[in-house]
Simulated assay, not measured.
Amino acid sequence: MDLILGIVLAICIGISLGLIGSGGSVLAVPLLIYILGVPPKSAIAMSLVIVGAVSLIGVIPHWQQGNVNLKIAALFSPTAMLGAYIGARIASLPIISPTFQLISFAIAMVVAAILMIRNNSNELDNSDRHKNYQWLAIPVEGLGVGILTGFVGIGGGFLIIPALVLLGKVPFKEALGTSLIVIALKSVTGFAGYFGRVFIDFNLMMYFTIAASVGTITGAYLTKFTQSKQLKTGFGFFMIAVAIFIVMKEYLFGLT
């Protein structure tokens, strides 16, 4: 029953990715841990594969619409991939406790939620006052986002998209499509940093990936009938609620 429930919820994760372009890992990690009983480090490693694969599928419609900038992706991705590997290697060290990692995950969720709500209320500014391309800043931020991804498993779209818009002068829709390529690539190296150091349930990860992929395709179709701004605001507050739940479980009650 837990597996069936997990697969159903994985479809919901995919739908959230298809609808609003984010939310995969922030839902997948708590689900794997608290519903299916996967150890925290393993859950974060598995979420990288799940979100990476689903993001790769999500690139397809953006590619067809011409909303993928390969030049910018090539600039952002190498340092992001390196950072993800470094973050994963740090997280897999015995000195990093699962509780510390999950508290860090909860903090990152709150930051992501706040940025999601703010960016949803105020359109990202891509005006001429950001005239100079900050080509050094893009790979530097890529490194930071990559380390965050490897350490806590969050894909980092909430940081990648503003960076591409503000620093790379990329239109928002193009930044969204390009960010999915970056997420997919750094998920590969992030998982490589965990591989062989934590337990991986490959069967469960495969079921989750397939279910989330189906959800993503469904979510992409549903965007025709929904208002993404309202969804993002609501999801942002939901993320804050999940973060509070994680802190209560890990820190106040110490149940894991």
Results as ranks from 00 to 15, higher is better:
D2Y: 11
L3F: 11
I4A: 14
L5I: 08
L5N: 06
L5P: 01
L9E: 06
I11L: 15
I11F: 12
I20W: 05
V26E: 09
L27E: 09
L27P: 03
L27Y: 06
Y34H: 12
I35T: 13
P39R: 05
P39Y: 05
A45D: 04
A45K: 01
M46K: 04
S47R: 02
V49W: 01
V51E: 09
V51Q: 08
G52R: 00
S55M: 10
I57F: 15
I57A: 15
I60G: 01
W63F: 13
W63A: 15
Q65L: 14
N67P: 03
N69V: 09
K71H: 08
F76A: 06
M81K: 00
M81S: 02
M81N: 01
Y85T: 02
R89Y: 02
S92Y: 00
S97D: 10
S97E: 14
T99G: 07
V110F: 06
A112G: 08
A112H: 06
I114T: 13
N120A: 11
N122D: 10
D125G: 10
D125A: 10
Q134K: 13
Q134G: 03
A137V: 05
I138D: 03
P139E: 10
E141F: 13
V145C: 00
V145N: 00
L148H: 00
G150W: 00
L166T: 14
L166A: 07
K169S: 13
V170I: 15
F172W: 03
E174G: 02
A175Q: 10
A175R: 07
T178Q: 09
L180G: 12
I183M: 10
F191C: 09
F191L: 11
A192E: 06
F195G: 03
G196T: 06
R197W: 02
D201G: 03
N203K: 13
L204H: 06
L204V: 09
M205F: 09
A212P: 08
T218G: 13
L222R: 05
K224I: 08
F225T: 11
F225G: 04
T226Y: 05
Q227F: 11
K229Y: 07
K229P: 02
L231V: 07
G234L: 11
M239K: 03
I240T: 09
I240E: 10
V242H: 10
A243Q: 08
F245H: 07
I246H: 03
V247A: 14
M248K: 10
L252V: 14
L252C: 05
